[in-house]
Design a binder for these strands. Structure first.
Lengths: 234, 234
DNA sequence: TGATTTACTTGATAGATATCAAGTTATTCG
DNA sequence: CGAATAACTTGATATCTATCAAGTAAATCA
């Protein structure tokens, strides 16, 4: 084994660690148990813009983000995109892989250079039998995700675009942080997709919120929240 | 024990049975195991229009529909309703009860005389430890529910009201049934809430679909699908 | 670092649908 | 079974936002 091979193996092992020790569904296990899981995952790397999976692809692995981020989105018949969620390190997708082999309804795309780990359905099922507590963690994650999805659908149906944008901005404020400056984690284009509108409308609504003195735009990605309460009760 | 007491106990026992033996998260267990679960559930009955829970109520029990049906909905700040889903016998709600005590974000209302069974978080946690396979069944149900919720959100965001109505009607067709006549399971008012529009708009769009000869209205709740393919590709 | 590409902003316009009103139909209640 | 209530349909109008275009700003690439 050349020095390069040895180096890659070590790097590979290190990269697996991020898929287990920092992942809520696994990191409650003890060290030996986590190492056992590290043995079963396969690492993959993607460049920005590459697809991890597309709608119609077979769904038979659980994918966990190790480094970078993934945008999960759906497309309508006419090609319109709805950004469902963004996955950060430690988060997973492909949970349908737990059950029958099915196909993805969503697309998963790397937003930046991203490395992931994948576990096949067979391996995952063995893990769940051996460590039932993992199921509870996955359940917890799915429950939260379901609640967020239902909230998103309800907001689309019952609130104006301005209200949805205002809610989004207010949610970016960190609970314990005194600072009222938020950093947009998404481009305006992705933000538009996430709250169910167009980039032009996001631009117009941000301008209006500024004119109403509820926010102040600092840069293209930083915004100061001037009146959080009014934002929440538009 | 009077005859009446004996009769009520037997009726009560029978009513519990529907909360276990016909429920996908439990009915894979064997008879003794299911009887054990029957011992832990509490039965409750509601009249049409009564609330099982409202937003803000503590969420610490899993609720399973035994007989009747529940409409689960959200309200916006301005009082607009979004019908999230309708629960039929065998289906459950309140899965957040599995974890930390939290509060409901949704409302659950009986659509007709409805009886439910409820299991507390403590009892449920014991059952999941004893029978880990229940977790997998709940996982399966939540995964499906999440996929449907994401689809609903995406439809609100990317499709017209006409397209959403058409999709809804097409989905009512039963796979193996040759009959193209569907029965609306919801009132027009509830249908409007479910697909994210108003009753007036549902009325107008149904009329338009009829004028396009894609459907034919038979009665207030029966519709004949004349051209399913075109419905799906509006 | 400059060229190229993409994101973003602003303007103008069209269309979808919410809202409100009023009349009709269906369901519920006593 | 008739009265009362709620659901539904139709008409009219207002508003929100998507779409398209064009110019500006920011990011990417060689």
């Amino acid at each position: 084994m050349t020095k390069k091979d040895q180096s890659e193996k070590r790097v590979c092992s290190v990269s697996h660690r991020g898929c287990v020790s920092m992942v809520p569904i696994f990191n409650h296990l003890d060290t030996l148990q986590m190492e056992e899981i590290m043995e079963t995952v396969q690492a993959h790397s993607f460049k920005r813009g590459e697809l991890i999976y597309r709608a119609g692809d077979t769904s038979d692995v659980l994918t966990i983000v190790n480094k970078g981020s993934l945008r999960i989105y759906r497309l309508s018949e006419s090609g319109k995109e709805q950004l469902v969620r963004v996955l950060k390190p430690g988060e997973f997708t492909g949970e349908l892989a737990l059950f029958n082999e099915t196909v993805h309804e969503n697309y998963a795309e790397a937003m930046e250079a991203t490395s992931v780990c994948q576990i096949t359905r067979a391996s995952l099922q063995k893990l769940l039998i051996k460590y039932p507590s993992i199921s509870l963690k996955i359940l917890q994650a799915l429950s939260s995700r379901l609640d967020e999805s239902e909230q998103q659908a309800a907001q689309f149906s019952t609130e104006s675009t301005e209200q949805r944008l205002a809610s989004y901005l207010a949610d970016l404020l960190v609970e314990d942080d005194q600072s009222a400056i938020v950093t947009l984690p998404l481009t305006k284009k992705d933000l538009a997709s996430y709250i169910g509108t167009t980039p032009e409308t996001v631009s117009r609504k941000l301008k209006e919120l500024e004119e109403m003195q509820l926010i102040r735009r600092i840069s293209s990605s930083k915004i100061e929240i001037l009146d959080e309460e009014k934002l929440l009760f538009l």
